[in-house]
Design a binder for these strands. Structure first.
Lengths: 212, 212
DNA sequence: ACCTGAACACCGTTCAAGT
DNA sequence: ACCTGAACACCGTTCAAGT
């Protein structure tokens, strides 16, 4: 029964925080195997518990997938937020967050695919509430930049007309999400120099916004 | 042994064309259940054969998934090609094929997800040859329209500079693919009126192209 | 409240065997 | 050449039971 001076983790024997340990294990497996086909039993094995212990924290496997995706959305949101800081104007800001976005996707392809995969959007009977909220952080940041550009007179979107702003946000998000997916899926050979692609793509979108 | 006048399908008892029957069954299941989580055994059951018969035509399950995806890519290519016909200029053509593209994705979400899913792009060790060729048809059509627009002086991309054209194609594909994915994944609430979205998005991209 | 172990119905894949 | 049936190692999920 000698305690091997493990900081403060497994004192309770009831594992302390199995829920988080399971999420961590799942995230690690996704990163290692570059796909999200892990089995619940493998995650349990890695966390050192029986294959049924996870059911105390997740009603079904999909709930664990949701939790993993949530980690991804948090990381993405933080990366975008910190990329935003040095930007002088809305144009720079748009390019900076686009770079951060695509860089995250390219660096975590399997996680990114899980985030935008079917498990969250359409399990069996669809879970609209999750689908709506999961990308909300990224979308909100994009929206802020578009509004900022409209206020500064940089983009020619009417800052009050909600449809016009919504369209601009959708255009930016589609471009950035589409490029990310094409890179992640290996559909474009130019994935080696993503920043060049992102810059070109976003200036094109920004130019389009100027013209409206 | 009386033959029930089935046209000419199952005369050989060895099923005639099991390979195609399996593909058809798989496509049908994907459309019905709106996901590609079907089991090989279910496909075999539906085709009326033992659960091992598929292995005579597909070395592993992923090969059947590839075949299903190929059906999707063919359908998409044909839809784009026929949408192209009535277009007067490159701008109209761009919008027409974009509409066809997004409409296909919105109408066949599960199939579209399979086409751009991880199974084709990064099975375990990646299959670049498949990833490169699978989207080639759609990409080629987009490229033709961009080149046509450049020749007509409608888009300001240098028709000779390969990078510039490649960038324009990538921009168009990213936009259209990104919007499709966002709709398919339920990340945008405006999925009810996709044509409005497509038109707005593509005019924006086209305006961006004019400006370069 | 949290965890374990046995059990159930299912899978993908392999192998020997049938025609 | 194509198909079947038994078999293997795995899964997700449930249930009774332990602490």
């Amino acid at each position: 029964m000698s305690n091997f001076a493990k900081p403060a983790a497994n004192r309770k024997y009831h594992h302390g925080d199995l829920r988080q340990a399971l999420i961590d294990a799942a995230v690690a497996i996704v990163a290692e195997e570059q796909n999200w086909n892990f089995s619940l039993r493998e995650v349990a094995r890695r966390a050192g518990v029986s294959h049924n212990a996870p059911y105390n924290h997740f009603a079904e496997k999909r709930d664990l997938l949701d939790a993993v995706a949530a980690v991804g959305f948090d990381t993405l949101r933080l990366a975008m937020a910190s990329a935003l800081e040095g930007a002088a104007d809305a144009g720079e800001a748009m390019i900076a967050i686009a770079r951060a976005y695509v860089s995250f996707a390219a660096g975590n392809p399997a996680l990114y695919r899980l985030m935008f995969g079917p498990e969250l959007a359409a399990p069996d009977g669809v879970r609209p509430e999750l689908a709506e909220t999961s990308g909300a952080g990224a979308k909100a940041i994009l929206r802020d930049v578009v509004v900022r550009g409209a206020d500064d007179g940089l983009f020619t979107v009417s800052a009050t007309e909600e449809t016009s702003i919504g369209m601009a946000v959708l255009a930016a998000w589609s471009a950035v999400h589409g490029l990310s997916m094409l890179i992640v899926d290996g559909k474009t050979e130019a994935a080696a120099k993503p920043d060049v692609l992102v810059d070109g793509l976003m200036t094109l979108v920004i130019d389009g916004l100027r013209r409206r």
